[in-house]
Design a protein around this nucleic acid. Structure first.
Lengths: 205, 205
DNA sequence: ATCAAGTCTGTAACTTGTTCTAGATTAGCG
DNA sequence: CGCTAATCTAGAACAAGTTACAGACTTGAT
């Protein structure tokens, strides 16, 4: 893996790197209006100034493309968060604050969020490596917020559950079945698991 | 809503009810082999002995069809569970046991599970009512297991988070990114929230 | 039993993701 | 530079979800 979290397969030439970037930009742009369905492969190709076949060489399916788009956006988020880490005392609160900040970022581009999250959860086994990368990024963000450098297995379980809740809550919000307030409550609720698994409390007397 | 949890719009004639049943059966059958992609609308129509246009009159999209299929299966599960309720003392354990039982049922037909769960999380706003019905069914199953007849808002939040975890954990399992053991751990972890929100402990001294 | 309204059938057409192909361009190398 | 393999382009073709439509069949009311 290189620094960007992509498999470090054959290194790309400059023009190829530029093409890849144009494609991801076009993808995010189109997703930003119309959401998942507005990201049409022919349109992405045209907007990126690339032939359809080339688009498919870079991203073997629409889902791959959108998951890569999500990777890209998460990277931004992660560096932004590192600059202004959450302030609260309690680890659980810090994680909740971090996720709510991410949530507010998504609210600014709900259509983009729709495209990315739907792709992420719809992905089948052929996209597992890429989805896994997104998952690891998310885990890193949460562990950062917790301030847990050497998490216990128990803490990792809690983080996994928090991620589950995060994704699923996003989906219910995106499909209009849950309000923003409800997502907030769900996040805060699940973050309580962190206190429950803090090593100071349960392991070291 | 009628007893089956579907909107009680125009009552169906006997032949229509039979058609609907044939369609759902064909859907489950095809999903049972090949999963999501094997449920092809033309094939469902043919297997159900129904014209394509008729299939679309009954279920306005493939997603609607698969979500309805899930409703159907959940109904079965619910009645099965009611007959043999979980035995454990602790509400959290009962819920975990119930979900693990459901999980084992899904493991017997992983392809069917794939089709149903992928459809459920991919569904957009146009399927919200149907997805919501599935969600209410799931909630009912969990509350049954908890034995909470008059759940507090806090308990409902916990149940919501458990549902989130349940769906998302299923997805990671289906896409091969988590083992069965890990799903078990995630379920057990999130079920700890139930103890945390039990009214006996936090509200009535 | 008859009629009007609503359903169902069979089939073609349309849309968008995906694959394929033949020829042009580019990259890396001697 | 000149060659070769890889890559890119343009466009056709294919697959599956969805829509449209004309004609046959059911249903329910009279």
């Amino acid at each position: 893996m290189n620094a960007e979290g992509r498999p470090a397969s054959p290194p790309l030439t400059e023009r190829q790197e530029a093409r890849r970037r144009r494609i991801l930009h076009a993808s995010a742009q189109l997703a930003g209006r119309g959401g998942f369905e507005a990201v049409q492969m022919r349109e992405v190709a045209e907007a990126a100034g690339v032939a359809l076949g080339t688009l498919y060489r870079y991203f073997p399916s629409k889902i791959h493309l959108l998951v890569a788009t999500m990777q890209d956006q998460l990277q931004h988020l992660h560096t932004t968060l590192r600059k202004r880490p959450p302030a609260a005392e309690d680890p659980a609160e810090r994680v909740a604050e971090t996720l709510m900040r991410a949530f507010r970022a998504l609210q600014r581009e709900p259509q983009l969020a729709d495209a990315m999250v739907r792709a992420l959860t719809f992905a089948d086994r052929s996209v597992s490596p890429e989805v896994d990368t997104v998952s690891r990024l998310t885990t890193a963000i949460i562990l950062d917020a917790m301030g847990a450098e050497h998490p216990t297995p128990e803490q990792l379980s809690a983080v996994r559950v928090i991620e589950h809740t995060w994704h699923s809550a996003l989906i219910t919000w995106l499909s209009g079945r849950a309000s923003i307030a409800q997502v907030k409550i769900d996040i805060e609720t699940v973050c309580r698991l962190i206190d429950l698994t803090a090593p100071e409390v349960t392991a070291t007397p």
